[in-house]
């Protein structure tokens, strides 16, 4: 589904991502974990083409998408839920959701049905449809961001730190919805600092450190890796 080959991204002369390669096979959940500043957000922004100055290859659905415009990439089904949620605070919850339909060729009647399905996953949003999205709590905003992403009908959904700033119990809700979406057929690329949660949910994981991928393996094997345990899970042996 997605194949990243030798990707390097620079901000001016700072190299934020250095020659990384990884793969996201169809139907899987792939986690990309790492500490602050490792280059995770940079990687996702490059994949969705928000960042332009990149070298290497990003093959999505058989095409190299480097240098394309972000709205075109989104229309191909590569949907990015950015770090910090980025809902539209002064649009209502409903407007935030309907905006997902604008680039799709779908009858509004059918879209409404999809919206009802999404409300089943996130019932809170249904109650708050008319409210300005900026007045939602942090957890609700994250739900809205995910719901908005689902309604874009992604083939591949990339999520950047969906657990950031949320209480542990809400984090569980969020991860539950992510696995649910995946079971319904959407491939997921998940970026997290919360390595424990991400690797438990993932089929396969990559660990990033200062712009490079230093480890990879199945979710379970990375969770048991002594280095991962020490650095990312805060366990002392």
């Amino acid at each position: 589904m997605l194949k990243v080959e030798g990707l390097t991204v620079k901000y001016g002369n700072i190299t934020a991502v250095n020659n990384i390669s990884f793969e996201v096979p169809q139907g899987k959940i792939i986690a990309l974990v790492g500490n602050n500043g490792a280059g995770k957000t940079t990687t996702l922004k490059t994949i969705s083409c928000l960042l332009k100055s990149a070298n290497g290859k990003i093959i999505f659905d058989g095409n190299d998408i480097i240098g394309q415009q972000p709205h075109k990439v989104a229309r191909q089904g590569l949907v990015h839920i950015p770090e910090g949620r980025h809902i539209f605070p002064r649009l209502t919850v409903k407007e935030n959701l309907t905006i997902s339909s604008f680039s799709r060729t779908i009858k509004f009647k059918h879209f409404k049905k999809e919206m009802e399905e999404v409300f089943e996953i996130f019932p809170k949003l249904k109650e708050r449809q008319k409210q300005l999205a900026g007045t939602l709590s942090g957890g609700e905003q994250q739900m809205l961001a995910i719901a908005r992403g689902i309604l874009q009908k992604p083939k591949l959904l990339t999520l950047d730190e969906p657990s950031m700033g949320l209480a542990p119990i809400i984090v569980e809700d969020v991860f539950e919805s992510i696995t649910r979406i995946n079971k319904q057929g959407t491939t997921i690329l998940l970026v997290e600092q919360n390595a424990q949660m991400a690797l438990s949910a993932a089929d396969f994981g990559y660990v990033m450190e200062v712009g490079e991928i230093v480890l990879n393996g199945s979710g379970a094997s990375l969770l048991n890796d002594p280095n991962v345990k020490k650095i990312y899970l805060g366990e002392v042996d």
Binding site: A74, H80, H86, P89, L91, I99, S103, Q152
Partner: peptide
């Protein structure tokens, strides 16, 4: 209105 609030995210919605 979305563009005026957050153009980058608007483009992520598939909007030119």
């Amino acid at each position: 209105r979305a563009t005026s609030q957050d153009p980058d995210t608007t483009s992520l919605m598939g909007i030119n």
